[in-house]
Design a protein around this nucleic acid. Structure first.
Lengths: 250, 250
DNA sequence: CGGGTGTTTGAATAATGTCAAACCGAGTGG
DNA sequence: CCACTCGGTTTGACATTATTCAAACACCCG
């Protein structure tokens, strides 16, 4: 599937970085501190959809701040199946893991064209040393990743296929519809294929197709061509076993 | 199931804390810095097997350093099934989540009698402020949790029941058999019931029972009464799709 | 001896996967 | 403008995996 081409977002400098407050740079004050990251960062980079930021098992020399586009973290099991671990949206800090310089324990695939800001891995500990507030921020971000992984685990481990799919789509929906956007849309772009959904939920693409059809026919949601339209928020939240939902009808 | 009673491990002071280097206190130097935590901590506590440190949805006023015993993190889905998210061993730092003071997004159940060192939640940000190295440590710990959750997700999402069970037991096995122990045991205590295994893997207890029987009859492992005996490390690692295995035969 | 918790067993059933073919729409090259 | 290919989706028949239900069992503990 191909997504509508958009120009990649690349800030000219850290000062006007659109995701500065979302990522690891947040605690750095706007003046001289920001210059430090500006010098620390290797540069920006654009990748086409389908490319990998890094692959599982690979030694990756960089971290990435996701400026624009969607990324999926994944692992490949020995039997050839792929598990998608998380979907990353702009603002994510990608690639941190406990043993900084070892082989990556997962891969990062670009679902759309993607632009990233690149940090050198090797020097990161020194940056942390100089600005330990970044460490605190990193702890916060990592705990978010953990919570998110926990939610996914419960989804995959406890719920039947229909609920899993509804839950995943709803949770992506609320992540996109952040408070920022004054006018909530109940029709959002989600650049996934049914296979992505299947790989994230431990299902097969054909079964996902069948369930999506049911959801469509029951007037709950329409997911087609990378667009998700929520038809019946309450009904969905119900079968999805979903708590935090604040959808505006329409 | 009841486990053999052991006296709870409680250090008399932070100076001789057995898990100081595993948990969040690691970066604090042994002298005056350690006195700070000593004063910061609320005290120690012992809980009986079956108790909860905190429950999902509850507002928890504390963090815990797990001194002794096993803890399971879990979520309950609306259909009544329980998902075990992680098994915690002594040295774990329990209860950190992004929104420090909100309701806990998961629960923590004591699988055995447990002893913990208690931190007040409210004041933690100040501790971080004064000793930002703790934040860096926390980031490290949290990224471990994330990686672990990712592994579990792949296990539950990609592998058939037999491989899931073998994988879980092997991974617990290597966590217990840390390099510390000079003499590796291929017969270790794992205080879980089959229902725990089922809840961790998205299976039912009766199916787990059946698969364990198969594994037993194929001379791969014996899991009984909270003891795991590895009979055929290589064979197991093979069906478990397991990488990092360094088992001493026996 | 009796009760509780955990385990085992078997049979019937439901959920999900597999395989194979057809379909659909977008992009490409003639 | 057509035919072709390609990735993604849909469909149906069928196989398999895992769940459910129910009963019996085993064991520890009081």
């Amino acid at each position: 599937m191909t997504w509508p081409k958009k120009l990649p977002v690349i800030p000219t400098s850290c000062g006007n970085c659109p995701i500065r407050l979302s990522t690891v740079c947040r605690p750095l004050a706007a003046g001289s501190q920001l210059d430090v990251v500006q010098k620390f960062k290797t540069g920006d980079r654009v990748l086409a959809a389908g490319m990998d930021l890094f692959r599982p098992g690979e030694e990756c020399k960089e971290f990435y701040n996701l400026l624009d586009g969607w990324v999926a973290l994944y692992q490949i099991s020995h039997n050839g199946r792929r598990q998608i671990l998380d979907f990353l949206l702009p603002g994510a800090f990608v690639g941190y893991q406990p043993e900084l310089l070892d082989a990556m324990s997962y891969g990062a695939a670009c679902l759309t064209d993607v632009s990233v800001c690149v940090f050198p891995r090797r020097d990161f500990p020194q940056l942390l040393e100089s600005y330990p507030a970044i460490g605190v921020r990193l702890a916060w971000l990592n705990s978010h990743s953990t919570i998110n992984a926990y939610e996914n685990l419960t989804n995959v481990g406890c719920r039947p296929a229909e609920a899993r799919i509804a839950h995943l789509l709803l949770s992506l929906y609320v992540r996109i519809n952040r408070p920022e956007q004054a006018a909530r849309q109940n029709d959002v772009e989600i650049p996934l294929t049914q296979s992505h959904i299947a790989d994230a939920l431990g299902l097969t693409n054909v079964y996902v197709s069948q369930i999506l059809k049911q959801l469509r026919e029951r007037n709950l949601l329409i997911f087609r061509n990378g667009r998700l339209k929520i038809l019946d928020p309450d009904g969905l939240a119900n079968i999805a076993d979903f708590d935090q939902l604040l959808v505006v009808g329409g």
